[in-house]
Design a protein around this nucleic acid. Structure first.
Lengths: 221, 221
DNA sequence: CTATTATTCAAGTCATCGCTTGAATGATGT
DNA sequence: ACATCATTCAAGCGATGACTTGAATAATAG
């Protein structure tokens, strides 16, 4: 024990905050919020080198935000529990609530002022049951394959302009992606609205949907 | 706008986390949770130099965790809103839930295993109304003077051993301090229990009590 | 206006972090 | 046992952060 237990405690709290203080690690956490992943898959998705990715993961593990297990020769990481997700969420909420900068970045994405309110998860669940809505999963195909909202169509952002003519325009379109940290859904909605299509964003992404106990179509892990 | 809005966003989130990643700044936030303070008062309480303290405060302000106003020649800082407090709380919860290290530090304080469950704020409010409890504010006298739980006695940690004989042992003792980051109450309870006195800790401190809308005796600012 | 007091700015130092590269470890399959 | 593959470790480099010192700014008092 150190001379100052008070400082030692604060040091531990600070360690957790420091683990969240690098964009690369937030990207990793966002990926892990989709489901557990191996090191190589994470490196791929985030564009980090394997070694660098491994080092970041070890920092996250030191802060107990993630845990790992072995599976054959691979090491699989996952979020420790829902509290990690809660912490990320609150971090985002504070940042968005307070920083004009964030506002401006998100504004820029929706190419102006016509970004509508997001749809709540509860509302979307009801409307899916009614069949009065088309749900688009705008994440990459492999993430869709690993699990998605029941009834959602996969439409990666790259193909969205191409696929517009095939959409059923009678139902409203709701797009979702990885979660609050992810801007795919923002971009998709902006693209659709530019073509005059009635599209909105889901509040939150797949991790939040799953956390709420709403129906998910699970793929192979 | 940068080439990658995604990274720019994550950079903003990371900025908030980074602001929380230094023990010195957590100390400052803990002080500010007691109420607004000037730079010099904060420097005094935390043991930082004035210049260093000012720099930390500016980082907290950049992350929008605190705001400031001028009052004559002094600049007064305060927490931006309750979300800052919530973020600190969640940080602590995650750290304590996950890190064996934290457990060990807190165990060490209560000199063993006999640390009882803390009293909830709700329960304490009821029992104060009944008069079935003695509430001790173990913060320094000046902080007590600036505001405390209605009915609480001030008993700074330094004097606690000396004052033990004067306590009414019929009622249970409940000690509180600045809040979850503060270990005064832990230490006070440990000291009292070492003398066989029935003492417990309040869950949370004055900021949480105030946040819950429970009765506070406000002193001069 | 000048002096005073509270705070902030600026420059410098030392430590730490993030990333890269290349080697070491650990589990699996032949 | 050996080769193979995924991951981790270790060393090095450049950038950033924390703290110190001393000067600059801003508001008030005389």
């Amino acid at each position: 024990m150190s001379i100052s237990p008070k400082l030692a405690l604060l040091e531990e709290y600070a360690l957790v905050a420091r683990a969240l203080s690098a964009p690369a690690r937030l990207m990793l956490l966002e990926q892990l919020a989709q489901g557990e992943r191996g090191v190589e898959a994470l490196a791929d998705k985030t564009g980090l080198t394997i070694a660098n990715c491994s080092q970041h993961l070890q920092q996250l593990r030191r802060a107990a935000l993630v845990t790992s297990r072995r599976d054959g020769k691979a090491v699989i990481y996952r979020l420790t529990d829902a509290k990690t997700l809660a912490l990320m969420d609150l971090l985002r909420i504070v940042a968005e609530r307070n920083l004009a900068q964030v506002e401006r970045i998100l504004r820029g994405l929706s190419s102006g002022k016509d970004a509508p309110e997001p749809v709540s998860r509860e509302d979307l669940a009801v409307r899916i049951a009614e069949g009065s809505v088309t749900v688009l999963d705008v994440r990459p195909a492999d993430e869709y394959a690993a699990g998605h909202i029941s009834g959602a169509l996969n439409m990666p952002l790259i193909e969205i302009e191409r696929i517009i003519p095939t959409l059923d325009l009678a139902a409203e379109i709701v797009a979702y992606c990885r979660g609050p940290y992810c801007i795919y859904a923002h971009q998709a909605v902006a693209a659709l609205r530019k073509h005059g299509i009635n599209a909105r964003r889901l509040d939150g992404g797949l991790p939040e949907w799953r956390e709420d106990g709403l129906p998910v179509m699970s793929g192979a892990q």
